[in-house]
Design a protein around this nucleic acid. Structure first.
Length: 334
DNA sequence: AAAGAGATCAACCGCTTGTGT
DNA sequence: CACACAAGCGGTTGATCTCTT
């Protein structure tokens, strides 16, 4: 497969964008749309490659981008989704409205990864450090084992999520049959109706029990899917704890909070409250001041720790075939 | 006030995937 | 089926900013 020449052409500018360049790009896209990125620079009068223009647009100029500090909920979402999806930043970004994959990736690498490490959690495996230390003692082979274990964990969880979605389809078919005779206004529409395509956002926790019964029809797969739900349930508990803490802080938007705890993880992902920074200013300062741990801080991170532990406990039954890693290189549409 | 260290993040690089022919 | 091209993606780099001494 041939590589595109991209920036190899002579005369094309590289490096930071100037305000004039931004203006040109913005003006052109506002008027014509981006169309073909490769031909865009010439049309817009820019001495840049199309790739550079696309990156500048998607990561910086796009009007629907939220910049600035990540909220507490956004942090939690990133950690949870990273435990589930690994370094699939674009997939994680689909659950964080107005945040770019690049921004999430940077935030993970510069903030969250370090915090987890400081807590004794391996940011790669999302397991307590004791495992990682063992791996370190084993030298390169040990490190490789840890990496492989992390990958297996992610892929296993991914497969679980797939099974979960499969079960959801079965459940929806069942519900449709029921709906034919009984109106069911309490039932939430499928996640797809909200424009989400991730398997991780297809169920609320309250639906878990109902789903479990449907899953019985899937035999061994049922256990895997139930296991996949455990971290989500643990996450909801962590969220509820966090909600209590935020109420103590006193400046939390009540409506957003109600949606947060009441709707569970799915609600969190669907909830517009993600776009608001609910974290009290005092917490920001503490975090910025070098992680001086208050009680709230400890509780918050203990919640995360519990969550991670629960995730680690959700092992995949050996009867479930884990597909080759290549199968996960793109997020499938369910 | 100055220098060095560390943190941050925009941008680049190169590989992979999707799509059209 | 094979190939070429466009776009997407994740890892990495390096300039800049902030903090510490």
């Amino acid at each position: 497969m041939g590589r595109s020449p991209c920036c190899e052409k002579d005369g094309l500018k590289k490096g930071p964008w100037t305000p004039e360049e931004d203006q040109k790009l913005l003006a052109y896209i506002e008027q014509h749309g981006h169309g073909c990125w490769r031909s865009l620079p010439a049309k817009a009068g820019l001495q840049r490659c199309g790739k550079s223009c696309r990156l500048r647009w998607t990561n910086y100029l796009r009007p629907d981008i939220k910049r600035g500090k990540f909220s507490l909920q956004e942090e939690q979402t990133i950690i949870q989704l990273h435990a589930l999806l690994g370094n699939r930043w674009s997939a994680i970004a689909t659950h964080l409205p107005k945040r770019t994959d690049n921004e999430i990736k940077n935030y993970w690498n510069t903030h969250l990864k370090k915090r987890l490490a400081k807590m004794g959690i391996d940011p790669v495996t999302h397991k307590p450090r004791s495992d990682a230390l063992g791996a370190a003692a084993g030298g390169a082979a040990g490190a490789q084992h840890a990496k492989a274990a992390a990958h297996l964990s992610h892929t296993a969880q991914w497969e679980s999520a797939r099974l979960e979605a499969e079960a959801r389809l079965a459940r929806e078919a069942k519900l449709r049959a029921v709906a034919a005779s009984v109106s069911a206004p309490h039932l939430r529409p499928p996640a797809a109706a909200h424009g989400l395509d991730s398997p991780t956002s297809t169920l609320s926790f309250s639906e878990s029990a109902a789903l479990a019964s449907v899953l019985e029809a899937h035999g061994a797969a049922a256990a895997a899917a139930r296991a996949a739900m455990q971290p989500m349930q643990a996450y909801e508990e962590a969220c509820k704890q966090q909600q209590q803490q935020q109420q103590q802080w006193g400046d939390v938007d009540a409506a957003a909070d109600a949606g947060f705890a009441g709707e569970g993880f799915t609600g969190l992902l669907l909830d517009g409250s993600l776009s608001q920074d609910l974290r009290p200013a005092a917490r920001d300062e503490e975090a910025d001041a070098g992680l001086q741990e208050t009680e709230e801080e400890k509780n918050y991170w203990n919640s995360i720790l519990n969550l991670v532990n629960s995730s680690s406990a959700s092992a995949l039954p050996t009867s479930v075939v884990v597909p080759a890693p290549e199968a996960y290189s793109r997020v499938p549409e369910f």
